[in-house]
Design a protein around this nucleic acid. Structure first.
Lengths: 119, 119
DNA sequence: TTAATATGAAACTAATTGGTTTCTCTTTTT
DNA sequence: AAAAAGAGAAACCAATTAGTTTCATATTAA
């Protein structure tokens, strides 16, 4: 997160409404009004949520005619994934090992996992 | 998150101090005062953060003599992981495919990935 | 047993958050 | 050209958050 950013991904996803907005935008690009129609609150409230998501770079908006269309920008999720992976050592599942392998690209470790899956 | 819970994992990890506390507790079990020594704020402030983390079930505390020792309870991370995995389709990396494989246990897909790694 | 340590709980505060309403501006539609 | 639709911006508000200070209680150490 740059110093100018007011919101990071952690704050952005803390709000349930914003998480729902992200799910909607995962399906497809949508203008503000269309997003608003899925929630029991005003357009301005949703617009503010979109600003937060935008500052966290989870979404990006472009103007099309009189509409502003937002789409998902999932890159920041990787930071969250990385943060989460730190705690995988205490979760002790195969997934955490696989993640480690994929991130580090260590083929030797992959062989061990392959062997486990084939046994 | 149960209905009685005031904080869920999303809110719990939104605060940078709480994320640091989690990292400290990932290393080992620690009493409140020892945790506090790592931060430029009062013990009561840290105690409150621990209450939040505790409600989110990310930590659990036990009384030992006059100390209250907290340790990590990483189970709630899996909910966050699951939520995150929904967006993997837009991230398009091998990791997301591997996660899918591991979670579903589909060996056939794993063979495809193995082939990719061996090429 | 007295002092020091570790914590809990309550009351208070400033800043932030998540919502509202109102007004304006731009763009489309009729 | 007039009306409708979509959005931005500002002002406002109540609740929540993240911190503080103070005081009380329990436990250990000297």
């Amino acid at each position: 997160m740059s110093a100018l950013q007011k919101y990071d991904i952690y704050q952005a996803i803390a709000d349930p409404t914003r998480r729902e907005v992200l799910k909607l935008l995962a399906e497809k690009e949508r203008p503000i009004s269309e997003i608003t129609s899925h929630f029991p609150m005003s357009r301005t409230a949703i617009a503010k949520h979109l600003h937060v998501l935008s500052e966290a770079e989870l979404v990006v908006g472009k103007k099309v005619g009189r509409e502003k269309r937002y789409r998902l920008q999932p890159e920041p999720f990787s930071e969250l994934k990385q943060w989460l992976s730190y705690f995988d050592q205490f979760w002790g599942n195969k997934l955490s090992i696989l993640k480690h392998v994929v991130e580090k690209g260590e083929k030797e470790e992959l062989k061990v996992i392959k062997a486990e899956y084939e046994s």
